[in-house]
Nucleic acid binder design. Structure first.
Lengths: 121, 121
DNA sequence: CGGCATCCCAAGCGATACTG
DNA sequence: CAGTATCGCTTGGGATGCCG
């Protein structure tokens, strides 16, 4: 019995939901190849709130995709980095982010056409 | 000025949100290489409601990723397929779905450890 | 069969205040 | 700096009913 994302009962669906998260892809994109601190991540990812960043990081951490390292100093110093598992996923999501950047123009044209059609109709 | 998904003002962020949608990846995965009817899609994607399927398809259609072809017959016959743009995105999301299926085991182990740790602590 | 409109509960998420 | 807890608005999304 193979895992199957089309089966809502299959755990892989939950994995997909994780990836489909609004912020996960950006966090993994940002962590590509380097560790970042909480505040650095927040600055890197425009528009994310502190709450959502923490929440996303916790979720990714629980899934073994992100590793959290806390240095016992004052002021607190916490670093986040990709685990090997996360490193295997990151390139895929990076590709998706890149695709979004590359095909932005075509999509905006489509949206304009759709909007114009709706307005005209 | 390059499109940049880290910029919340940049349109590519909206594109990413589209991709990050809970159902989009599954729809694009299901439409790989063939056209499907509304009911076929609904059957293929376990757990999706009629409302969400329509909503997802409309969104993908507006963005030029999915093409909708309606045959004027009774009973109605509507087919959905990938546009060239959609075909360029589909492999990326298929990879993500595959990754979810392949690494399900590792992630469940991580979750169990995290759960056990939380329960023990 | 395909799909839109409505209702309504639940989850998402930002803002804020507080802790170490 | 990093993180938790709470509140309240906003959105998501299922269920249902009606129409071509």
């Amino acid at each position: 019995m193979e895992p199957n994302v089309f089966d809502p009962e299959c755990g892989s669906r939950a994995v997909l939901d994780l990836v489909a998260d609004k912020w996960s892809a950006l966090v993994l994109y940002a962590l590509r190849g380097r560790a970042l601190r909480h505040a650095e991540l927040k600055r890197a990812i425009g528009g994310i709130s502190q709450k959502m960043l923490t929440q996303t990081l916790r979720s990714l951490e629980a899934d073994g995709i992100v590793r959290r390292v806390s240095f016992p100093v004052v002021p607190p110093h916490v670093e986040y980095s990709l685990t090997p598992l996360g490193a295997s996923l990151s390139p895929l999501l990076t590709e998706v982010c890149r695709w979004a950047e590359e095909h932005l123009g075509e999509i905006q044209e489509s949206r304009d056409r759709a909007g114009a059609g709706a307005a005209a109709g």
